[in-house]
Amino acid sequence: MQENLDQEVVLEAQVQTLRAQVEALQGQLDQDRGTRTGPFRGRMHNALLMLSGQEAEEVVEVEERLRAEVEEMEEDLSRQTTLNGFSISSCSAKTVHNSSGGVVLQYLLSGSCSVLIFQVEFCLSEVKGQQSSDRTISQLNIVLDSADCPQLSSFVSGVEQSLDLLLLFRTLRRFSLRSEERRTTFQHFQEKYPSIVSLPGGCRSEVMNLHHPQLPGCALILSWSLEVSVGGAVTPHIHLLTKIPETALQMDRVGAVGGAAESFQSLRRLLGTEAALESLVLALSQ
């Protein structure tokens, strides 16, 4: 996964570089056909050298070739995004230090994983040895923009201390998958049983309410939270709570209501979460 993510970051940077080259080329064409190639290097430098005195057909050929490279890299980036579950919206790097002994680059990476929007800033130092180079990460700063941030705050603080980027991206992926599993389950039951199931906070909330159509004031509340450990483990906690008026509890001589939570957990262990919820909803609908 780390290799795929590295490829995605590199592709995003290359796509943005080529886009900038195409725009700069077009701007140079609009201004003149001179030989002002000084600020450009690589493909852009060669392209502008060609433009100085060449025919319009060759100019168009250069521009089309650059655009084709952009499209090819965008396709590669799209495949990497589908594979990893990450979408990189921007990636920039600037040189902080450069000498014969090594180089320090400062990276700013922005993107998303499902509904988790992140921004990661760090310095990558490369010290050149006789046979190999040693790379280290420092000054790691992580910003998450999501309603689920409170559950990830302790984990993020730990990653900023440990400088473990691989752990960060692996955990964001796991958390997103668990969140999506909860969302699809809640949405499925709300759409299938609208008279019984309600979602006060929407499909992405942690709570599902179950009401008996003929028993107003009585409800079962499903709490489905996600815990993220400092080590990156994502653990779901699913509990059934009861909201029953005192008069109804007094009439429950066999303890059916009081034992609902324990019975639900037994069903979950035997059938799984979705099947246990299905059985619970069907029992309420009778």
Rank of each mutant, 00 (worst) to 15 (best):
L11N: 04
A20Y: 02
Q26K: 09
Q28G: 12
R33Y: 01
T35P: 00
R36T: 04
R41K: 05
M44G: 01
M50K: 07
G53E: 02
E55H: 11
E57A: 14
E58A: 12
E61A: 05
V62E: 14
V62S: 06
R67V: 13
E69T: 00
E71S: 14
E72R: 14
E74L: 05
L77Y: 01
L83Y: 08
S92N: 11
S99I: 06
V104W: 05
Y107F: 10
S114H: 07
L116P: 02
F118I: 06
E121K: 07
E121L: 04
F122N: 03
L124M: 04
L124I: 02
K128F: 08
N141L: 10
I142Q: 11
V143G: 04
D145E: 09
S146W: 00
A147Y: 00
L152Q: 10
S153W: 00
V159D: 12
E160C: 15
S162D: 04
L168V: 01
F169K: 11
R170A: 10
L172W: 12
S176V: 09
R178W: 02
E181A: 11
R204V: 06
S205E: 03
E206H: 06
M208A: 13
N209D: 04
L210M: 12
Q214L: 11
L226I: 05
E227F: 01
V230S: 08
G232N: 11
G232A: 11
H237Y: 01
L240M: 09
L240P: 07
P245Q: 03
E246M: 02
A248P: 02
Q250Y: 06
V254F: 10
G255L: 12
G258Q: 07
L267Q: 05
R269V: 14
A275Y: 03
L280D: 04
